[in-house]
Design a protein around this nucleic acid. Sequence first.
DNA 1: TTAAACATTGACAGATCGGTAAGTTATTGT
DNA 2: ACAATAACTTACCGATCTGTCAATGTTTAA
Lengths: 189, 189
Amino acid sequence: MSASKKTILIEKALETYYTGGFQAVGMDRLAKETGISKTSMYKHFRTKEDLILEVLNLRDENFRNWFVRRIDELASSPVERLTAIFDVLGEWFHEDGFLSCMFIRASSEYPNSDHPIHMSSAKHKRLLLTYVIGLAEQAGVPDPGQLARQLMLLKEGAIVIAHLHGPDGVATHAKQAAEVLINNALGRS
Amino acid sequence: MSASKKTILIEKALETYYTGGFQAVGMDRLAKETGISKTSMYKHFRTKEDLILEVLNLRDENFRNWFVRRIDELASSPVERLTAIFDVLGEWFHEDGFLSCMFIRASSEYPNSDHPIHMSSAKHKRLLLTYVIGLAEQAGVPDPGQLARQLMLLKEGAIVIAHLHGPDGVATHAKQAAEVLINNALGRS
DNA sequence: TTAAACATTGACAGATCGGTAAGTTATTGT
DNA sequence: ACAATAACTTACCGATCTGTCAATGTTTAA
């Protein structure tokens, strides 16, 4: 299997897993959808779990790149970037085919914290937290870790509610709450 | 199968599904763990999905009863009840065997919004929202719906983060954010 | 006592699961 | 040109999945 075919497989698996779930999508189905035989797939991935881990790595890369880029496009000051988080979330929630966050879904299917898939999901959230801490630092708040963790709670909660109750208004509510928290962190200005 | 055996089955299924996941736990395993034959189980539940839906009903009842009761035990004023939400969450997160919220897990395994299991999960969250709106009304805020939705975002986010990054500090961060939002809703007092 | 009604069982169907063995085709280096 | 090798496929393995069937106990009622 060429490297490009491997990439194609991972990309197709990302799409199919996101739509159908990790456990519900079998290797046979991926073989059928990609036209690549199972044996070829298993030449490059020792187990299904290995494939899922590579899919999650790609998703992490794609998502964080898109997320940061959109925030930079929408905002021009550090404080604006903090609120833009929720505008970008709103765009995501309203995309056709939005079905929650792949890492929340993954950690729900593999709930035990010592499972590699769970750990990979935790890592993704930690990387996002680090990014938001950086934004909070640039905004000059006294305790960037605290504000960033608060905004992350709003972000994850918004994802869950947008998935369960639909996208309308969720990101807006989260943004309004975020503005209150940001102003408070900046000294109630 | 007597009614009590049916109850025992649902309770055991709740425990096993919560620990192991819905798709990962098969009917054979439930039969082995309860000592009830599969055929007997299928006399009372037409499909596995029906069993899961009854499990979710029981979980919804158990959880909301416990949640409301603990809040009432910890708080004596309406505003206190709003913040006590997060004290109770902290207790939950630190329980042995905490593995996120059963309904977030369920909606992650059955992500399509028209799926009965997904709809049941959405209903649970809606009932909780209604409860929090009631608390916010009693607290006398001008827009109880807005505050309640903001606090729900913190709650769901806290569940996700406590599951992925461990329980320490998560409920406390959420409570601090909640206090800011509550004070703001009350008029920045 | 005995027959009807119900409860329960082990064994099985058919499908699908993750994963593999053996064999075939295509590519490569010399 | 040709042997070595890498890429790839078909067919299959045992296990497990949801769900069912025929047979056997067990209760109930007249």
